[in-house]
Design a protein around this nucleic acid. Structure first.
Length: 328
DNA sequence: CGTGTTTGACCCGCGC
DNA sequence: GCGCGGGTCAAACACG
């Protein structure tokens, strides 16, 4: 896990007990991209790692590459170690629903984090899924008749969601995702897309849907944690960060150039307002504790919202917006 | 040819 | 038990 020199003990961050702010308005980037909807040229996480956290290349000079990903046979153990020894909240999170934070302003960002029944027993895709794959091989012809263990509720990964103001649905966070489904969503004219991390053994999933309330807002829900280094493919870039949260603290090199040239102005103009507190380690995923997610505008929406019991399994933009209005 | 998307069918949980 | 809605699978297809 690379923090780019940002200390986990950063008082400014640790002292923060709330976060909130603006929806990540990425629409301004559309022009920057010249109408190209492909976000492959600028990582979404790069956008999230905006503001003062985005520092010129000199910052990366001091970056220490993480150890290479462990073999699959030991990755789960390493993962656990990372979760316990570092800052991952997942391993210590008591079962709860997603943490939802509403925007305090129409231009505020909204994060929803969750951990659930699986939180104390982090999903270890390597071994379990290997077995499943073997079973699948045997029963391949049975297709979806594959028996699922009954009386055993499907355990869901810790989830968190956030809202992004963007014209593109699938924001590039630097990882490679494969779309494996799309469903129409009730009470929404927009379909929900399902993505899965393409890395072998990595069971991280991502749901992307547009807010029916505000089509400009994209609600992205992550589920699970990456078990591999970031980025994961040659296409992406070199593996430079091994963050158990699954979110790199470093922009992909291929993005860096454009980010410096194009994104920074926007970033600084409309950086979301978000403060992540390490005190929320038991509720928020790693990446939210990452310094990249330390935003500037003071806000107490998170604590307010959590205090109000707005922890929900699924982020509800409509409610979020209503809540935001009530705040005003 | 490898990789990613589309899409219809299927599975499962949940509420009535 | 039934229907609905969410989630997943995998064949077919597209693309570079």
């Amino acid at each position: 896990m690379a923090n780019l020199g940002f200390s986990d003990e950063n008082p400014a961050v640790a002292a923060a007990t709330s976060f909130g702010g603006g929806i990540f308005d990425t629409s301004a980037c559309d022009g920057i991209n010249g109408g190209d909807n492909k976000w492959g040229s600028l990582g979404f996480m790069d956008l999230l790692g905006i503001s003062q956290d985005f520092i010129a290349p000199s910052l990366f000079d001091s970056f220490q590459p993480p150890p290479p990903p462990p073999p699959l046979s030991t990755s789960s153990e390493l993962h656990r170690q990372q979760l316990q020894g570092l800052t991952s909240p997942a391993s210590t999170v008591p079962e709860s629903s997603e943490v939802l934070t509403n925007p305090t302003t129409p231009n505020s960002s909204s994060f929803s984090s969750s951990s659930n029944e699986a939180a104390n027993d982090i999903h270890e895709p390597t071994k379990a899924e290997d077995n499943e794959e073997q079973e699948l091989d045997q029963d391949k012809t049975k297709k979806q008749l594959k028996p699922k263990k009954k009386n055993q509720k499907r355990q869901r990964e810790p989830r968190f969601a956030f809202m992004t103001k963007s014209e593109v649905d699938h924001l590039d966070d630097g990882y490679r995702w494969r779309k494996y489904g799309q469903k129409a969503v009730k009470n929404s004219p927009f379909p929900r897309s399902y993505y899965r991390c393409t890395s072998a053994g990595c069971g991280v999933k991502k749901r992307v849907e547009r807010s029916s309330d505000d089509p400009a807002i994209v609600v992205t829900t992550y589920e699970g944690q990456h078990t591999h280094a970031y980025p994961i493919t040659p296409r992406g870039a070199i593996g430079i960060s091994l963050d158990p949260s699954g979110f790199s603290t470093v922009p992909e090199p291929q993005y860096l150039h454009q980010q410096q040239q194009q994104l920074q102005p926007y970033i600084y103009n409309s950086s979301p307002s978000l403060k992540i507190s390490t005190t929320t380690a038991t509720t928020f995923p790693n990446f939210l504790q990452d310094r990249r997610f330390k935003f500037n505008t003071p806000s107490s929406s998170a604590s307010l919202l959590t205090d109000r019991g707005l922890l929900q399994d699924i982020i509800d933009p409509t409610q979020m917006r209503k809540e935001a209005k009530e705040e005003q």
